[in-house]
Computed example of a mutant assay.
Amino acid sequence: MPSDPALLAFVAAVFVLAGIVKGVVGLGLPTLSMGLLTLAVAPAQAATLLLAPSFVTNLWQMMTGPHLRPLLRRLWPLLGGACLGTLLGSGSLATGSRMAVAGLGAVLVLYAAVALRAPRLRVPRAAEIWLGPLIGIATGLVTGATGVFVVPAVPYLQALGLSKDELVQALGLSFTVSTMALGAGLGLHGGFASPMVMASLVALLPAMLGMQIGQRIRERMEPRIFRLWFLASLVVLGGWLALSAL
């Protein structure tokens, strides 16, 4: 547990900011926090600090709203595939290539740039039963290599034609399942050994405060503006991943 007041204040500010972004667009807390925290602490310490805030904020996001049961019935093929892919790929996280992270960032930027200028993609409802598991497994393998569970699950979820609030809740559901699967996979490889675990629990407070602020901002957004924010956030997160890997 760090005792430096300046460091504690910096960590709290990072999680408030990342929580606001997550509250508005439904994603970004781990990626944004990781990038900022590594300015002050070692990457391993930053990753440990993220454990509790990432899991609890995703769980909170998943539980906020009336759409959880319908989403579970609709998304179980994606979620099952994500669990399988993550467990299969989690062994590569410790030896993951920085080029894989850079490539993931580039894909995010490319997808968002195309989506900003092109009509929305649509996945036919009948295709979800077979496409969902494939997208889930691919997302899980990417998670196993990079620790980031965004591609291709987020573009897939956006292509389902969900409403603003349904999309945010679906992201929370997907990220919660992926976080649990990644935790199980890392546990199999002895990935939980750090004195920063208690600090991760303390970091929950600023993260949840920021997320609550972000949710209130989102409630006042028009769907068109939300979509622009959502895609712009993918550009920023993708650019951040690509640059951090150089």
Rank of each mutant, 00 (worst) to 15 (best):
D4C: 02
P5W: 03
P5N: 04
L8E: 00
A12D: 08
L17H: 03
G28E: 12
L32F: 12
S33K: 11
A40G: 01
V41L: 15
V41A: 12
A42W: 03
Q45I: 04
L50E: 05
R74I: 04
L75K: 04
L75D: 03
L79V: 06
G81C: 09
L87T: 08
L87Y: 12
G89N: 07
G91W: 03
G91D: 00
S92C: 03
L93R: 05
T95H: 15
A100P: 02
A102S: 10
V109K: 04
P119L: 03
R120N: 11
L121Y: 02
A126S: 15
A127L: 08
G132M: 00
I135A: 13
I137K: 06
L141E: 10
G147K: 02
L157C: 09
L157M: 11
K164M: 14
A170W: 08
G172H: 10
F175Y: 14
V177E: 07
G190P: 11
S194V: 08
M196A: 15
V197E: 06
A199I: 02
S200G: 03
L205P: 04
G214R: 06
G214K: 05
P223T: 01
F226K: 00
R227C: 01
V235E: 09
L237E: 11
G238S: 05
L241C: 12
